[in-house]
Structure formats: C-alpha cells, structure tokens
Amino acid sequence: MEQATTQEQRLAPGRRSGGGNALPVLEDGAWRAEQRSRSLERLLTLLGPLVVLGLWELLAQLQLIDTRFFPPPSHILSTLVAMVASGDLWYHVRASLSRIAIGFLLGAVPGIVLGLAMGLYRPVRALVAPLIGALMPIPTMALVPLLIILFGLGELSKWMTIATSVFFPVVINTAAGVAGIEPIYIDVARNYGASRWSFFTRIALPGALPVMFEGLQMGQAIALLTIVAAEMVAASQGIGYVIWTAYKTFQIARMFVGLMTIACLGYLFSLALRALAQKLTPWR
C-alpha cells in the first residue's frame, strides 16, 4: 500500500517545476472534449476585451458616441505610439516608477520589521496595535496635505505618501502571518533547541512569508492608486500628472494613454510580485 504511493510519488519532485497537478486519467473522448472546452475558454478570455474595443471603435467611427470624450481606440493607439517614440511616455513612467519603488521600500521595510516585532513580542503588539488601528482607516489621500506640510512639495512628500499607504497592509499582514504560525512548529523549534535567532530565521520568517506577501501585494495595488492621486495634486511629471494635465488641456487621447499605462503597470507589478513570491516560498 505504502509502496504504491511511494512509486507514484517518486515522479513528483521532478515535475514540481511544472506547477500543476498531473491531469486525471480520462478516456480519450472525454480528454478531447476537455481540451476543446479549455481552448474555448482561452478564446473567450481574449474575446472580452477585443469585443469592447471593437465596439468602441465602431461606435466612434460612426459618431454614435462623442469622440471628444471617447476618441476611437485607433486614435489612442497612435497617440501612444507618438508618446513612446518621443520618449515623452517613458519620461513620465520613469518618474512614477522611481517614486513607487522608493516609496514602496520606505513603507514595506518598516512594515515588515514592525510587523515581525508585533508578531513575536506581545508587548510590542499591545503598544502599537491601537495606533495602527486608529490610523489605518484614514485614506492616504486625506493625509496628503499633512504630508506636504511635513515633507514639502518635492519628491520626499510623494515617497512618504506611497510609504504611508503601503505600510499599513504590510505591517498588519506580517503581524498576522507571524501570529498565525501553527503552535506545533514553535514546539518543534523549542524541542530541537532552536536559538532566538534560529527561531526567527528558520520558523517565524518563513512561516509568516506567505501571508506577508499578500500584504505586499495589497500594498502594491494601493501604491499605484496613491501615486496617481498624489501626482495629480502637486507634480510636474509622472503618470498622474499626464492624466491630470491631459484632462485640463482637453487632450483626451493622451489621458487614455495614461490610464492604459497604469493598468499595464499594475498588471506587471502583480506578475513580478507573484514571481518573487514563488521564488521565495517554493514550498507552497
């Protein structure tokens, strides 16, 4: 009995990189039907956005919608191409990206450190949890005026805006990740004589990592929301600035390019974070 599972499992480690489980053994006909329905699903996934874009283009070309507010996708695309070619888009994307990267680090690193401390030491949790609970519900955008008073109109206030919005989900998830480690793992560590440091590096950190990453993923999404809003208030470059000034100067196609860029950035960020999570938590 055990022998049978052993044989079956022997293949498993090598297949790990493939990610998915082995397909259930199906009859030939059933298998083909399954394949057909899968390729249909893939087709439908692509079809959704294409239909919307096609319909939009058609309605715009027929002047059935107001093209001053909804320029046809083909026009948006040519604007995008022009902005990419002139380096205009990259200039703004680079500004936003560096703000996000620095702000993200400024928020995530203290969030992880404080979250670990909260998860590991109850007095720290007792001291800090009420403060976090009170500050968290304040939308970061409501804090922007205060952050500008504190940190001025320059880059620092933008970094701090993002840092503030990233900090809360990261600190809360990290603390929850540590607190949620199964007591039996703590027993194992104690029974085998783990030092404080070993307990931290071999048990607490890896044990909290999966939940911590959910916090980083949330922080990443919030960072995008925040940067755009912050750049609308006080900035001379960045994606938020592009959207806001394009709206003000009625260059609507340019505004749509800004919106699309943000959508792409968000998607790429979450892909990158997911890849990082898979690399750092291969046991999941």
């Binding site: 793992y185 027993d187 085998y192 004589g193 071999r202």
Partner: peptide
C-alpha cells in the same frame, strides 16, 4: 540532546525540504 520528540503528522515543517527537516535538530546544535 536530552530528548527528541516525534510529533503528530503536522509536525514536519512545510517550508523545509525533507533533508532540511531531518537535519534541523543537528543544525540547531
């Protein structure tokens, strides 16, 4: 070491490979 415990099934640390799990007690020492 004075003692070593064999825990119930969930006692294997999920973030360590088979080898790392077995070596854990030796590494701690």
């Amino acid at each position: 070491p004075l003692n070593a415990m064999v825990f119930q099934e969930q006692g294997v640390l999920p973030w360590m490979t088979v080898e790392e799990n077995v070596a854990f007690g030796l590494q701690m020492r």
